[in-house]
Computed example of a mutant assay.
Amino acid sequence: MTDDGDRRARYERFLSEAALAREHPWWRPGAMRPEERERLVRIGLAMVLGDRAGDIRVRRGDEDTIWATDGTHGFGFPIDIVLGDDPRTVLEHDLEWLVDELCETAVAWAKRLPECPLHPDSHPLGLVVSDGLVTASCPVAGETVRFAGY
């Protein structure tokens, strides 16, 4: 009897853990895989920070939250299953999040970001996400500064 009770308890625990696993965001249809999200975060950092992107480490934290840090200061890109798996939608969201975070931590990062390399310390870059391409440009001169595919 005791053996049957133990087996049943283990089976019920297994079922509840399996149900929890199915509820994890990455198991849901249409959610972007963490590896792909991390890749898009790296593309966003390269677009916004240019040469300074190499100073930032990107890693996956608990439950696949993406973290960007320079070793002293950092911030995370939270899981957001509502975004789905469309790279353009996710990249637009992540670029907006990145710019907001960099603006909020401008004192810590010692520069106003994203900084226009053509006019340092005067205005931020303009960022446009189109099908398969992200373009960073100077909003004053209208000149393309960086672009990257995704």
Rank of each mutant, 00 (worst) to 15 (best):
residue 33 R to M: 13
residue 122 S to P: 00
residue 128 V to K: 01
residue 41 V to N: 09
residue 113 L to K: 03
residue 46 A to R: 15
residue 94 D to A: 08
residue 32 M to S: 04
residue 57 R to Y: 00
residue 19 A to F: 10
residue 75 F to V: 12
residue 58 V to F: 03
residue 52 R to K: 10
residue 45 L to N: 00
residue 135 T to Y: 00
residue 70 D to G: 03
residue 6 D to N: 09
residue 65 T to H: 09
residue 117 P to D: 01
residue 112 R to W: 08
residue 59 R to W: 04
residue 116 C to P: 04
residue 127 L to E: 02
residue 79 I to E: 08
residue 56 I to L: 08
residue 6 D to E: 08
residue 95 L to H: 15
residue 116 C to I: 04
residue 57 R to Q: 05
residue 52 R to E: 13
residue 36 E to A: 15
residue 64 D to F: 11
residue 53 A to H: 07
residue 133 L to Y: 05
residue 109 W to F: 14
residue 20 L to D: 09
residue 88 R to N: 12
residue 133 L to R: 12
residue 38 E to G: 12
residue 37 R to G: 11
residue 136 A to S: 06
residue 125 L to S: 06
residue 9 A to E: 10
residue 47 M to F: 02
residue 15 L to S: 08
residue 74 G to M: 00
residue 14 F to V: 01
residue 111 K to M: 05
residue 34 P to N: 14
residue 69 T to R: 03
residue 22 R to N: 08
residue 81 I to W: 01
residue 56 I to K: 07
residue 118 L to Y: 01
residue 21 A to D: 15
residue 51 D to H: 04
residue 5 G to I: 00
residue 50 G to H: 06
residue 109 W to V: 14
residue 73 H to D: 07
residue 12 E to C: 05
residue 75 F to S: 06
residue 127 L to F: 06
residue 86 D to G: 10
residue 109 W to R: 12
residue 34 P to G: 14
residue 97 W to N: 07
residue 25 P to K: 04
residue 45 L to V: 02
residue 14 F to N: 11
residue 107 V to P: 01
residue 4 D to S: 10
residue 134 V to H: 08
residue 23 E to N: 13
residue 89 T to Y: 08
residue 28 R to I: 04
residue 63 E to Y: 07
residue 106 A to Y: 07
residue 121 D to V: 04
residue 14 F to C: 05
residue 129 V to S: 11
residue 130 S to E: 13
residue 66 I to S: 03
residue 20 L to G: 03
residue 89 T to P: 09
residue 33 R to Y: 10
residue 33 R to F: 09
residue 104 E to Y: 08
residue 55 D to C: 04
residue 106 A to W: 09
residue 33 R to Q: 15
residue 78 P to I: 02
residue 119 H to M: 00
residue 84 G to M: 06
residue 111 K to A: 10
residue 64 D to S: 12
residue 105 T to N: 05
residue 48 V to P: 00
residue 96 E to K: 15
